[in-house]
Every structure is written in C-alpha cells, then in structure tokens.
Amino acid sequence: MTDVSLGMPQLPAPAYPDEVRARLEADAGEVIARYPDSRSALLPLLHLVQSEEGYVSRTGMAFCADVLGLTTAEVTAVATFYTMYRRKASGDYQVGVCTNTLCAVMGGDAIFDELKSYLGVGNNETTGDGKVTLEHIECNAACDYAPVVMVNWEFFDNQTPESAKKLVDDLRSGRPVEPTRGAPLCTYKETARILAGFPDERPGAVEASGGAGPASLIGLKLAKGEVPGRTRVVSPRGEHRQDAGQDGPQSGSEHLSSHDAPQSTSASDPAAAPEQHPQGPSSEEGE
C-alpha cells in the first residue's frame, strides 16, 4: 500500500467484530424472511445497522451488501437517497423542527432559530455533549398540532420556543421526557431498531400517551354534540401558551430560509472524515 491516495480507491471498510456480526446476522435473517425478495430488506437493514452505531457507517453498508449479495455501490446509492439515514455519528436525541410552510408560519421558524442559538449548533449539528442533534424537518403529518417538533420521531405537538428549550434542557440533563403522542423517549439507536421492524418490547410503550390526540378528536366531539361554545378553544394548544414569553418570534422582515444547501453527494463528502467515507475513490472531488 502507498500513502498516495489521489484517485486511489479506499480500502474496504473494517468488518464488525465477530460477536456483533453474529448478532446482526441473526437479526438480518429475520428481516429478510419477511420479504419474497431479499433486496426488499435493504431499507430495514440500513435501519438495523443504524441501531448498532447510531449512523450508517461504511462498515454497516458493507454488512448490508454482504448479507444481501449486493455491491457496496448499490447499497451506498440507496443509503444516501433517504434522509433518515445519518451519514455521521450524531446525538442520542434527534430533535427535528418542522419548518415546512404551515409549521414554519405557525412558529416553527422561530422555534428552530431559537434552538440554534440556544444550543449553539446549526442545522444537522450535534451539541458538544453528544446528546442532541438539531435539524429542520419536512411536514410530518401532524399539521393540526402545529408547530411540531419531533424527537427521535416521537411527536411533540403545539410547541413554542420556550417549551422547545425546556425540552432540549431535559434531554441534555437526562430527565425523562414524554412526547405528546408516542412512547417515553428511547435513544436514537433504539428507535432505529423499531424502524428495522423489531417491535418495541418496553412495557407500556404501545399504549403510552393514550388514544387519539386532542385535535384528532375535535370533529368526533362536535358530531357527538360535545363541544358547546363556538368560540371556546378546546384544543390543547391553549395550555401551552402561558409558558412562552415574549422572545421567540424572529425579527421583523427577515425570515431567510432555514433550508440549507442540499447535503453533498456521497462521493464528495468531506474527506475530513475518511473513515466514514463510503467505499469508492476517496479524493476524486472536492479537493
């Protein structure tokens, strides 16, 4: 081997330690058995390797390729297409603020800006203690609970800048955090395992937070004649109001987009972290 790397392919990713590989292989076998064609297991398997390391590493992709009989290029192409697969080590808690139009207008932009400055991180960056990764997300199908914040893909409805700051404080200090809709938070790795298709075994996780959320019931209650006053605010949104101070909403005419440039493609990922670089020419671009 030589140190000259210009245009040279990277070495294959290191393999998982034997016991990790054996464990993941057993899980992978279970996933693959769900599908008539093994390749269909690729998305769940990428969730699975993410549950091992907290992100999709070169090692994880090589593992997927190996058990499915695909090339690492085929796996990399898929892993880099979907936004839920992290490309670098990140925090235990993924805090996603919806900044699609409706949530943004209802306060999502203000919440995202507030959290950026409060945590001192930008989009898709992690706090120094490794606890919280902040990102803006797209519409998460909870518009009747806007503005919405997702933590490890559990719903935190009707947020304000103040409630969101308290949320990240609690996450960073290890206090138990319960979503508005969903189960008490587990780590990002544990969440990824559920996404791989392994049911959440924690007692009470399925029933946590009860049946439908309050906004989901508005129409039903009206149909049953249960909501009397027309001007009465019956949704829970009012309950959160008192704790949001005057700060928060961003300044007047300036509301620059919170959307950043698209993530770089796999091949042009910063060479700064070569060990995370997907297999392939390591220096063909961006240098």
Binding site: L102, V105, C143, A215, S235
Partner: peptide, 9 residues
C-alpha cells in the same frame, strides 16, 4: 389546520 380556532380531523 393553520390559523383556525380548532384545528383537527
């Protein structure tokens, strides 16, 4: 959803 008094289903 949005600027309504009672968003919901």
């Amino acid at each position: 959803s949005g600027h309504v008094t009672n968003p919901g289903q």
